[in-house]
Write a protein that binds this DNA or RNA. Structure first.
Length: 122
DNA sequence: CGTATGACGAGCC
DNA sequence: AGGCTCGCCATAC
């Protein structure tokens, strides 16, 4: 399927992209987490749409949106229908390049790599 | 404007 | 544990 319009001005997607852009290198975040941090309490699925809709080479907050750092709540790279397909392997490779251990089945240890967000005041 | 469609997730068997 | 079934919510058409 193809995304027709979805410009960078789309407020919902832009908000999501901005949160994704804050996930630091070497860490991962979950779809639901991104949605909540963006104020979309139950919009996990929407995050998937937003990531898919990232314009090629787009920059948000001055950097490329690290879509590959977003995985599902089970710590698994989303199969997108085809488990271990090209897309998934590409994402796994991108994560490993940042030092994140990814199992053969595409699983990441959330306890170890999950981004906890910025600590505001303990 | 109604229905279908997911890069999801929590709950139930 | 491993599958289902439903909500969810922004889009596509």
């Amino acid at each position: 399927m193809k995304i027709r319009k979805t410009s960078c001005d789309d407020t919902t997607f832009l908000r999501l992209w901005q949160v994704v852009a804050r996930v630091p290198r070497g860490r991962v975040a979950t779809y639901g987490q991104i949605a909540r941090m963006a104020g979309l309490q139950r919009g996990a699925r929407t995050v998937g749409w937003a990531l898919r809709a990232i314009p090629d080479g787009a920059r948000v907050l001055g950097r490329r949106v690290p879509w590959h750092r977003i995985i599902n709540a089970e710590g698994v790279i989303s199969p997108r229908g085809e488990a271990l397909g090209a897309e998934v392997r590409r994402q796994a490779a991108a994560l490993r390049r940042e030092g994140i251990a990814v199992s053969r089945s595409g699983r990441v240890d959330l306890g170890r790599y999950l981004w906890r967000g910025e600590r505001r005041r303990p």
